[in-house]
Design a binder for these strands. Structure first.
Lengths: 349, 349
DNA sequence: TTGTAGGCGTTATCAC
DNA sequence: GTGATAACGCCTACAA
């Protein structure tokens, strides 16, 4: 009647199976190098004893962990959730485990978290966006830990990255907005400090409108941390000006949903009184009334590809550059047309 | 010009600081046991070398990791996100790290994940709900890993749990629905197999209505996996019957949002044509039109308390029982009143 | 095909 | 207050 109060180790298994620890280890890590008879015997013992290898010991001896770390700004909303889920599923398929941690959009926390993940033995790292202290890139290099950037992809940066071109995507959406006749533009951006994706999106908006000759004073930008509530407040402040915008372009869907909610509270009709756009195309974008015009980001594909790319980097010790993923403008009811005098039309549509 | 291609270890630090590895270790783990002069010297070296302790080695030597594992059904929606975020923040405050993994609502995956987290050295585990193979509880006991149950709390179960009473909460909501005059009830539940929270919620609904004498045939329940889309489909099937319900009570807000969307697509007015209720009070519940009547779960408090409780269990090796948290019915526009003949009123309100 | 033995980087128990 | 030194559990040459 063995009161198994102790955790079985490789030794216990070896002893019970009448083989050496080396053989047990092989049965687990390279089964083909053990003859079937012994392998079966060993695996049975593993089962009955309920043996599980100790991760720390294994990591130390093998000097790798089959673990990938990811550091994302937040798990609080759907923006990263879908991509992360796909990332983790693909990792799992290829025999890797995911370690997540989040910075709560405080970039200064990222370095500590990178260290923590590396200390935990992460074989590779997924990071969001390009912008971070160069010392971090140095650190990654000295530790020889491959890192892949996601949610962004800029043509002129050398780091391996799987994502879309935030600036070009927003430029495309802004073009649609321009084509719809809007000439008085409000922008609600996430805080751009330490967030290159947010910055690029604002730049994309500027590109389009200023290139087409919009007077700079017709384009007003406010920054605020991502949240539904902040989106609402920023919207109110934009609408409170002498010449309120006919369209408010938001840095992401969460801000846009906040703006829509506030607009309704202010008894403004969308898109008759004001149009609103987002970015990401999270589930909320279709639920909200009216449905949100936004940019559809290929979250799943991005997650899956990132997993494959990062594992390749880890296993082959090489780094490649990747082409940007496509993200398409998705027009829904929250964006309406403005009839310009030149068009000879009568009113908003 | 040292080309530091190697990762610094405790030995390197000890060597450079001219002390023993034991002293370096103490500087890091019990600074008060080292005289200030040496401590400063050592810590400087740690800085300049960029030393980070190796997690695996540390875990092996110290036989603990300051790591807590959590296994949740999904990270895909907001249901667990808020509580988990609070959980992780509180863990962080107390010097612990969180390891998450998700089962995608497939209970049979839980055991493997528990093993994986324990193999990774989790000092304690957070699990959702009570229902699981008894063998799992045995395993946890032999491995001597404390586990805390969250998102549920049943008076007559001995396991330590921090959460609310799903059955009682849903009973309270059902009471409100009853008071509003509804006598033809539709229920959309998550799959109850392997999900005690979902089962208890349905039971809560039955409790209220059957106790008050509602004929069983006036209460129809459909089960479907959690998702907005499935919620919509289930709603359509409930409404397609000969005597469609005047209210559809959903097992959570995600299903309810799906139901609302489908109702709109079917040109049904809420609550005039049919009322809809949810459970959880996630952000979506306030965004959706009309806003959703639901049960407000204290996610943050639950997360925070769970962290404290679990750390206490780990550090003191004791287990206590906890009282259920309160969750309140939150009435919003998606629930309307039915005028009964007895009330002498005229119509729906 | 299988066994032996050294080493991975820490912590903790002792002496000093 | 500080320094040796023995675990900790596993992997992997290398040898048999």
């Amino acid at each position: 009647m063995p009161a198994k109060r102790t955790i079985p180790t490789l030794d216990d298994v070896a002893l019970a199976a009448g083989v050496s620890t080396a053989t047990v280890s092989r049965c687990l890590n390279a089964p083909e190098r053990v003859v079937k008879a012994t392998r079966d015997r060993v695996l049975t013992v593993v089962q009955t004893l309920g043996y599980t290898p100790n991760f720390g010991a294994r990591a130390m001896a093998a000097r790798r962990t089959s673990t990938i770390g990811a550091i994302i700004p937040t798990m609080n909303n759907a923006i990263f959730a879908r991509g992360l889920q796909a990332f983790q599923e693909q990792l799992h398929k290829r025999g890797y485990t995911l370690l997540v941690s989040s910075t709560s959009y405080r970039p200064e926390l990222e370095e500590e978290q990178i260290r923590a993940l590396i200390a935990r033995g992460a074989d590779g790292l997924l990071l969001i966006g390009y912008e971070r202290d160069p010392a971090i890139y140095d650190y990654l290099a000295t530790r020889d830990v491959p890192a892949l950037i996601a949610w962004a992809n800029e043509r002129d940066r050398p780091e391996p990255a799987i994502g879309f071109d935030n600036r070009a995507c927003m430029r495309a959406l802004a073009q649609t907005v321009w084509d719809y006749g809007h000439r008085q533009i409000g922008v609600i951006s996430a805080t751009t400090k330490g967030n290159d994706r947010a910055l690029r999106r604002v730049e994309g908006i500027r590109d389009t409108f200023l290139d087409r000759g919009l007077p700079p004073q017709n384009l007003s930008v406010v920054e605020t941390p991502y949240s539904i509530k902040n989106g609402g407040a920023a919207f109110a402040s934009l609408m409170a000006t002498a010449t309120p915008p006919t369209v408010v372009m938001c840095g992401n869907d969460v801000l846009a949903v906040g703006a829509i909610g506030r607009a309704q509270a202010m008894n403004l009709n969308i898109p008759e009184d004001v149009s609103i756009t987002g970015f990401d195309d999270i589930e909320l974008a279709r639920i909200v009334m009216p449905p949100l015009t936004t940019v559809r980001v290929p979250h799943q594909k991005m997650g899956r590809r990132s997993a494959d790319a990062l594992i390749d980097m880890v296993e082959t010790r090489t780094a490649t550059r990747f082409a940007a993923l496509k993200a398409k403008v998705k027009i829904r009811a929250s964006l309406g047309k403005i009839a310009t005098v030149a068009d000879g039309k009568t009113a908003q549509d």
